[in-house]
Design a protein around this nucleic acid. Sequence first.
DNA 1: TTTTAACTCCCCAGAAATAGCGAGGGCAGA
DNA 2: TCTGCCCTCGCTATTTCTGGGGAGTTAAAA
Lengths: 242, 242
Amino acid sequence: MGYLAQAPQLDGLIEHLESAEGLGDLQAAITGLRDQYGVNHIVYHWVNAAGDQYGCGTYDQVWVDRYLEKGYLRIDPVIQGCYQRFHPVDWKRLDWSSKAARAFLQDAIDHGVGNQGFSIPIRGPNGQFALFTVSHNATDEEWEDFAEANRRDLILVAHYFNQKALELEPGRKPETAQSLSPREIEAMTLLAIGYSRAQAAETLAISEHTLRVYVESARFKLGALNTTHAVARAISRGLVVV
Amino acid sequence: MGYLAQAPQLDGLIEHLESAEGLGDLQAAITGLRDQYGVNHIVYHWVNAAGDQYGCGTYDQVWVDRYLEKGYLRIDPVIQGCYQRFHPVDWKRLDWSSKAARAFLQDAIDHGVGNQGFSIPIRGPNGQFALFTVSHNATDEEWEDFAEANRRDLILVAHYFNQKALELEPGRKPETAQSLSPREIEAMTLLAIGYSRAQAAETLAISEHTLRVYVESARFKLGALNTTHAVARAISRGLVVV
DNA sequence: TTTTAACTCCCCAGAAATAGCGAGGGCAGA
DNA sequence: TCTGCCCTCGCTATTTCTGGGGAGTTAAAA
């Protein structure tokens, strides 16, 4: 540990990734990648809905369980920060001001995650969101050099990794098919920006009943239980922009 | 035309991109990139779910205007296809079976877009969606070779290009998001996944009234007009992950 | 120590959303 | 041509949400 290796050969890595045929191969690839870079950990973390998460990486199982158990998903500034950014993020640049965040960081360090980290947000279709994270124990300077030298390669690796994960992930596909009609999108958009049904109907110059039909139709297509749920899904799938 | 150059130096390109300070610089960069690759066109196209678009590239203005005027956004299989995919897409692999799609393709070719194309979907925060497209007149074989040789570089260029576009985009909001309390986040999360207030209260083991207080508090902090609006804002600000 | 903020509980009346039944015209693909 | 999807409109009853009051405890900042 503590040894940051030279950048590995990108071509070989990506070819290796592209030939993966199961989640086990991804796990093996990520472990190999970690060893080649000589960092403490590399983790791919598919962040999702109501608690269910999927990922693979080199974190200690104890830490992964603890993360889930403690609900760190809702505290972790890496998640919060990456969710709002496009470019890779050095952990140092995140907001650690809250006490909960600092306690979380300390807990992470105690579990061998490392004091430095670098996370790449990745977004796929239907609002998929994942993180590709490299973490290590190093000084600020060492880490800066490492990140600078490997940023581009890591972006590419993260991209190909996510591509494979999307291919291999079993349960995610069926959700995709249904998209909303233009009028349904307009209706959902207006509700998402705070209009009541009456206001939205007036804005679209249709009867409130018709608007209701759109909302119900959208709710059905999105598999949502109520309007709020439907709007939430529409937003997180990128169908509606607020 | 017809000449596909060797891959240009990636490092120089990206540095050039990173120093861009305005949309004009992006336009210049993309034109230079086109010339270096020796292809007909390179286009960056920011597509908004609401329908408004922004982009820069080397397409003829006549074609751009026609695209907008004819509402091709809703027909273009490149948009439809990329929206559902994560990896770069060769135009040949898209669904051109509908009559409207074939007419569109012919129209595009007539306007000098090229018979071959390759589009990279890019997604940013808040449901941002953009395409980075390279198009050319070439045989299938020539194009295959070109795409194979340059895919990775183009993915990276697309990434950095989008990063710059996000920085420069005028409509970007700083939004000093007042954060929600843990309990408020829990409440909003449950509503976002379709729970009614009663269900959410039961899940959190608190009275429905207390839950209501959280929701109202969150609504106030988020400047939202109603619960649906508040959930929408919480999601698009990354406070709630659905 | 004082103050602030988070967390918890209760009642009520009016406003809004949901669920159920319907109906007809238009347009594009099979 | 016919099937399916999109767009449009109406009625009623029930359930859920919203907004107006008020009040106590704990824990963390100032």
